[in-house]
Amino acid sequence: MFEARLLRGSILKKVLEAIKDLLTQATFDCDDSGIQLQAMDNSHVSLVSLQLRADGFDKYRCDRNISMGMNLNSVAKILKCAGDKDTVTMKAQDNADTVTFVFESPNQEKVSDYEMKLMNLDLEHLGIPETEYSCTIRMPSAEFARICRDLSQFGDSMVIACTKEGVKFSATGEIGSANIKLAQTASVDKEEEAVIIEMDEPVTLTFACQYLNYFTKATSLSPQVQLSMSADVPLVVEYRIQDIGHIRYYLAPKIED
């Protein structure tokens, strides 16, 4: 039997909002350490890696490892039926072909359950090599979302250039060109609002704006976002989910023709 209960049910709602536009289906791999999900988008340009640790749930039971293939649009529709303050429980019998979501209102007066058929997905798991990144940028997630939204109006691609002075986001297109420079925050009094750059080597890479805007759907999960870059390897955009895990997006760079 698999059962995972989360008082902060809104986290699951936000996680689905953060991945459903990028992925149509994915497998939730559950074991006694928690829930993992790893899937590439249909074009195989980006990859989502979600981890929700067992100790972040208010109750977590996983008698036997279980992989549940799900249509993420369906899961998103079901989770939209949960209130922001509801407790959400996911449960499934061993080798079941359905999963049940139970939503309990804060005062326990309303309890809803939704049963959904599971899918047989033989999604390939990619090996993501541990990488020492040349540049790591931590910044407010809302700031990053704003930059991606603004610059994607100017062009399909965004250049991210990280140096010791700071990080510059640029885009050019028909209507012109745009540059946004963020300096490293000097006095870090409020960590969440700071721009913190760790740089071993300067790095400049080009990425498709469309995917970056999909990634920023995760903004509500964390006040900060962390960008990790090295020459000629995929960008990592990471949103930490407080006390339970993270969602990481990987995006392959674009190269000059």
Partner: peptide, 14 residues
């Protein structure tokens, strides 16, 4: 123009 790389060339396949 720029060419979009695919992830498989960076990450080991299954």
């Amino acid at each position: 123009d720029e060419i979009q790389e695919a992830l498989q060339i960076f990450f080991t396949g299954p």
